[in-house]
């Protein structure tokens, strides 16, 4: 299904389906009385059995609960850190929200550090709140990202890279070893062996935004060929 919809359009299929069973409306769709109305321009998607959402192009991040994001610590204010995650407001991060952190054993986080965290509070009326541990108190992949390089991209690219069937990272691994963290707020952290490789990786990822799956593997091969010849 690849319809492009504009704000104000009605999704009659969703309205019909709602008469039979519950329908889930995702981003970009709103219910107004009995009507399903589009509020963002983009591609309409449907997933069996009952979910509709709009895939829209966006550069500006709006916090969503549960998203993994990359942020920059801007200030240390008593018990919390202020973290810039690219949204309209800075997120707060408690110093206790790190693995094995206690009141005595404070984590070593300083303004300017880059963090990979998960949003546990993200409501339109509340300040977003980050944590760097999972529900059982382990850090997992979250925490301070040392060294490396952070770049910005559109939210669509970040979502695309994280999609399960996206071949980009898999074909890049064939070319060189690297570390990557992708934040859903449109930030990508990269670390490769050398500066040259990091820049090449960054360019390959940004170039993949408008590429099809076959073109992606071609881009990755090219990068490898240029770097190692």
């Amino acid at each position: 299904m690849t319809e492009i919809v504009l704000p104000g359009d009605r999704i009659s299929a969703a309205e019909e389906l709602a008469k039979l069973k519950k329908v889930i409306l995702g981003p970009g769709l709103r219910r107004e009385n009995e009507q399903v109305v589009v509020c963002k321009a983009g591609r309409l998607n449907y997933k069996e059995p009952n979910a509709y959402w709009i895939d829209s192009y966006q550069q500006r991040y709006v916090p969503v609960r549960g998203d993994a994001v990359i942020g920059v610590v801007t200030a240390k204010a008593g018990d919390i850190f202020r973290v810039d995650i690219g949204a309209h407001e800075q997120a707060s991060l408690s110093y206790l929200a790190f693995e094995s952190a206690t009141k005595k054993n404070r984590p070593d986080v300083n303004p300017g550090d880059v963090l990979y965290g998960r949003l546990i509070v993200a409501s339109r009326d509340l300040e977003p709140e980050l944590v760097c541990v999972n529900s059982i108190g382990k850090k997992g992949k979250l925490g301070v990202l040392t060294d490396g390089f952070v770049m910005n991209c559109s939210l669509n690219l970040a979502r695309m890279i994280l999609r399960e069937n996206c071949p980009l990272l898999r074909s890049l691994t064939k070319e060189m070893p690297y570390e990557i963290a992708v934040g859903l707020n449109g930030r990508i952290w990269l670390k490769a062996k050398s500066l040259r490789e990091t820049i090449a990786l960054g360019n390959a990822i940004l170039a993949a935004e408008n590429a099809s799956n076959e073109e992606m593997s071609k881009i990755c091969e090219n990068i490898g060929n240029i770097l190692f010849t």
Binding site: T2, I4, A41, Y57, M160, N165, E209, N210, A211, N213
Partner: peptide, 22 residues
């Protein structure tokens, strides 16, 4: 005109994950 240009824009930027012909 809006509808046409937004369709073109999205066909360009979001067709990546699909296997469809670009």
């Amino acid at each position: 005109f809006y509808r046409r240009i937004i369709s073109n824009f999205h066909n360009k930027s979001l067709l990546t994950a699909d296997t469809k012909v670009r």
